[in-house]
Design a protein around this nucleic acid. Sequence first.
DNA 1: CCAAAAGTGTTGCTTTTACACCCATGA
DNA 2: TCATGGGTGTAAAAGCAACACTTTTGG
Lengths: 244, 244
Amino acid sequence: MSGSESYDPSKYPPVAVTVDVVLLTIMEDSLAALLVRRGADPFKGSYALPGGFVTPDETLATAAARELQEETGARGMHLEQLGTYGDPGRDPRMRVVSVAYLALIPNPPEVVGGSDAASAEWSPVATFLDNTLPESTSILAFDHRRILKDGVERARGKLEYSGLATAFCADEFTVGELRRVYEIVWGVDLDARNFHRKVTGTLGFLEPTGEMTTRGGGRPAQLFRRGPTQTLNPPILRPSPTVI
Amino acid sequence: MSGSESYDPSKYPPVAVTVDVVLLTIMEDSLAALLVRRGADPFKGSYALPGGFVTPDETLATAAARELQEETGARGMHLEQLGTYGDPGRDPRMRVVSVAYLALIPNPPEVVGGSDAASAEWSPVATFLDNTLPESTSILAFDHRRILKDGVERARGKLEYSGLATAFCADEFTVGELRRVYEIVWGVDLDARNFHRKVTGTLGFLEPTGEMTTRGGGRPAQLFRRGPTQTLNPPILRPSPTVI
DNA sequence: CCAAAAGTGTTGCTTTTACACCCATGA
DNA sequence: TCATGGGTGTAAAAGCAACACTTTTGG
């Protein structure tokens, strides 16, 4: 809003405000996003991000969480604001300003099936973001490809300097499971031994539960919970793409 | 927007969409923000961020740039989206969702005096963010303190890993001038010699003009322009607050 | 036994830091 | 001449990557 005298909210231009959510998980060794298939024009038959109107009495974040629960039944996952997309013409029907959120959910994603008529599905993000795939048969509605791309970028970047990766893990997890998150989201191989030293040496990142597990095979591994640290210092460095 | 069937933009709830801008500069050795004094209720007499409605045919970023030009006459400065603030009740008159932008402008800030009736002023951000100052006599309207704080945080963080600092410098600048930006925004002292090596050694950050200057006294210094690099690798590390 | 994953030790290299030192100007 | 800021050299310390090696399970 403005401090200028020209500001009179009773004469606001007609705009609709919605939230769209990029919900990511790790499924079968790849990064996947929740998408809904559109049953009506415009973009009938295309996939779109889950989302909807912001109702008068809820915050933007609450609206995003509500939409997520309607589609997945899940609550309490990581949720952060991603950005706002409001170009005129992005929705052919009217001016729609959409506040996008990024959400992350642990490994075995909830089975889909909300109160909603539209069907939601998990798809590998590469299907929609990788240009080298066979003829973009998979097209996202509106500017949702851009939003999905921004969400994936955000997640990739934040793994370096925040504890975000643990949002992809169950409540208790091993160092190996955490490493696999980094490897899948970044699409790289990490040295298991140096990774182990790094994450266990970063104070506040991981908290040992004292328990061990043998799931995954091999020698039993310690179980950890997320620690209180929000920013990782030193960061977990992403290997720079090897120049050839 | 939604892929669900419940989405009908013709029945959107009444919401106003505005842009607010955190415009920062460096003035007299401190970080300062442009604020306008409100001439009407609510918050009459308080300071607020410059901003206003998004008109039907402009993008969000264009609206922010337009508001800035109306207040300062300046154009072409760095401008990036900061975040969106839409809690119900943040404006007592109606539901207002505000998309905040962060803008940076070089050293000698343009004199203020736009077409607008309201008067704009530069104030050190510490006046509004530092809690230890005498009784918060300086209060920002709405949730603008939070927005200002988020903007300053963003700028501080991005100095580390992006070329953002050059947005505070004139077209041509010396390494010493660039260093002063870092020192003022971060509120730390940096070793001039190591800083020089670091920034001149980061490929694509600075481009030598070939010219020299003696402004600022002492031995003549090389002049540089911003280079093409968007992300700094390696980053310019902010000294960690020394634990005592 | 072997394979697989967890975890520790060590070594050489790169980066960072701290600071000694010299340079080129204006006053 | 001195004060001021610009810039280079260098050595100690810290951080990081690569990889040999040991541990503990399941099959």
